[in-house]
Design a protein around this nucleic acid. Sequence first.
DNA 1: CCTACCGATCGGTAGG
DNA 2: CCTACCGATCGGTAGG
Lengths: 202, 202
Amino acid sequence: MDVRAQILTQATRLFADQGYDGTSVQEIAEAVGIRKPSLLYHFKSKDELRENVLAEMLAHWNAVLPGLLLKASTEERFDATMEALSEFFIEDPDRARLFLRETLDRPEQMRAMLAQFVQPWVELLGDQLERAKEQGLVQRDVDPQAYAVEVITMAVAGTAVIDSLQVILPDDPARGSTRKRHTSELIRIARSSLYTKSEGEK
Amino acid sequence: MDVRAQILTQATRLFADQGYDGTSVQEIAEAVGIRKPSLLYHFKSKDELRENVLAEMLAHWNAVLPGLLLKASTEERFDATMEALSEFFIEDPDRARLFLRETLDRPEQMRAMLAQFVQPWVELLGDQLERAKEQGLVQRDVDPQAYAVEVITMAVAGTAVIDSLQVILPDDPARGSTRKRHTSELIRIARSSLYTKSEGEK
DNA sequence: CCTACCGATCGGTAGG
DNA sequence: CCTACCGATCGGTAGG
């Protein structure tokens, strides 16, 4: 792995762990095994590094998420999609925490990002839910866009804070690990608050 | 208002806005209208100030939340409780953002806090849901503790990031403001994924 | 509650 | 990719 990629990897991890302001350039350089001025040769400033970390995260999401969401729309397999979506965040909690942190730290910038990358998919999902409502498959009082936003919030935030929840949501022999319980209940809530009963029951 | 209270108010606002590491003692002192050493006379260190800000937030929650949750259990008015819970966070988004930030920044410490202040209520709510399940009022596949955690996560995180969501969830003449749409859908999801259908329908 | 000041660390640059 | 160094700001203290 070349140095640039190593810098991005360590920066992602440290920004997710400690936040942008809580992480020094020095600390990232040490994690990579180089000196601070060497890092600043690859990325001209700490801010430029942050932008590259975010761009990489977005690129990864754009490569994977469309497939998940299209699967949902074409196959009407909402369960499988929700499970994939949840596992997509669980698989790399750093990304979920980074996303949440940036939304808190730079709401203005995140607004622009959401408009560009998330809104089209929420819109598309909204249209499909609207049609499913007309066919009686989906509960009539659903607000499709708001529903999508709440479910995504639950998936992202739930993943970001999962490690703090072990006290409240301990591993359970009958129900599985903390993560499993979180994922299962997230999916159950999302499904059971969406479909009409005849469709929602197994 | 005495100086100590002013310091706590401004520190709460700035920590919620910019995070602990993103806020300097100097900045808080300026917001209050005093010099930095004067602030450090009232709170011996920045860390002690942070602890006091958190303690004040917890005190406020402990004074208000038990009433909300007891109302839910005794009156079985889940809707009203969820609405009150959501409005409790919406009313002061600073507290929701601060809570989320601390969970990200100091997960270890937050684990202890959750164990002390949140777990008892989740346990109590869990027991009541368990009994309601036996009576057939609540869907049989609900994981009560996990359900409580997901709904609280949705309420806190949703409130904390609401301002960034206006692009995705715009004001709508038929559905109301962004906040209204968030609150309504949150309550709808929570209710409709909990009760059995005969009970859940209006 | 203030002025004056401390060492440590910050992001970043010069120059090789 | 390094050594050497910069001014600015950080949290905190002395002393009144």
